[in-house]
Design a protein around this nucleic acid. Structure first.
Lengths: 199, 199
DNA sequence: CTTTAATTGACTGACGGTCGGTCATTTAAT
DNA sequence: ATTAAATGACCGACCGTCAGTCAATTAAAG
């Protein structure tokens, strides 16, 4: 035997070392050489851990998304009602604290749309399903508590998609000036419609 | 003086000549040389008309989107009610007839997310605003006709975003198996909520 | 000393983008 | 009618860059 390194950990370390570089320079500007240099490794070593630049982004989003989910889960515990809980989710798309992850997620979505990579798709599915299940669960609770009308259960995927769609629109057009306001306006109106009257 | 060509027309011609190549091979696979070859021009000539491969896609989407909008406008005339009109819009994301444009639009969105190009953003804004205004108008009509509740006016952008978001989710995850069904389910439920009771 | 995992950066082939040069057509002077 | 000058269109050889490879090197463990 010889030196044994924790490949999983080293992969994480390399990814995190390049976080700022990627956030600032996007996926185009920094070359593999630059990335390797930033992480303090040789170019060959980079390829020992990642198949491509895309995979580095994938790793970064993975790490930060899992961290983010933990934070969200804690915030949800303190939320008063279903509407507030949904706003906590959608906060991902405008909160200052998630700015870094958001920039990376934007690139990640872009790459997913351009070269539908198998593992990326699997990860996106995993994320989507996790969020969607959360959504479904808390909406079910809202219905059970007589907070919102039962129709809401059929809208879980759609509400999630609305936030995503608005985020992408706000990033690719000038048509959505204040994403937070726009999203909240939609959620508030929807909950007005869903409100169980006489409650 | 010398030969004068219609640059605008030739740009269109080059773009359309490469349509299938791009649809099949995406934005990565075909090289500029291959593209030039397909269009029957030299590589240098390509650069007379386009700054980059991205701009070719931009031109293609422009052309096909304008064609698509004309078709949609005609379909809208025959629509019975507001809900059907909205379904005509969202049909873009699943109808067989718009499959080509959809593939290109997917790439276009991906690129917009990756390297927010000024002109691309302007074009996306133009498209979004056009669709959004249409949405707003037909929702206003629906409210005026007492078809739907006045809250709907506040949801125009959101509904549009939902369709976009679901489309992107369906393209980047395995979580949305039947986009048409999923979108229609959402729209139907929303219109149930918006329905003016006793009408 | 041997074995083997880990690392490396020089090397290569491919590709994007440029630029000097050619070609075709029009103009206009003779 | 002829031809020289002018110019826009077109082209592909060339150049620099960069992704990805691989032979050589290092160093830990037996």
């Amino acid at each position: 035997m010889a030196i044994i390194v924790d490949k999983t950990q080293k992969k994480r370390d390399i990814a995190l070392a390049c976080k700022d570089l990627i956030i600032k320079g996007g996926m185009q500007e920094p070359t593999i050489s630059k990335i390797a240099q930033t992480a303090g490794i040789g170019k060959g070593t980079f390829y020992e851990y990642f198949k491509s630049k895309d995979e580095l982004l994938f790793e970064l989003v993975s790490i930060l998304m899992r961290e983010h989910n933990i934070k969200i889960e804690k915030q949800l515990e303190n939320a008063e009602n279903t509407k507030e809980k949904i706003k906590i989710f959608s906060g991902f798309f405008y909160d200052k604290e998630s700015a870094d992850l958001r920039v990376l997620y934007k690139m990640f979505t872009g790459i997913s749309l351009l070269h539908s990579h198998k593992e990326m798709m699997a990860f996106q599915t995993e994320c989507f399903d996790a969020y969607y299940l959360w959504f479904e669960k808390l909406i079910e609770e809202g219905v059970k508590n007589n907070e919102i009308a039962p129709e809401a259960t059929k809208m879980a995927k759609g509400i999630f998609a609305t936030a995503k769609g608005m985020f992408i629109a706000s990033e690719t057009t000038h048509s959505i000036v204040d994403l937070k306001e726009e999203l909240n306006k939609y959620i508030n109106t929807l909950f007005e419609l869903l409100s169980v009257k006489g409650q």
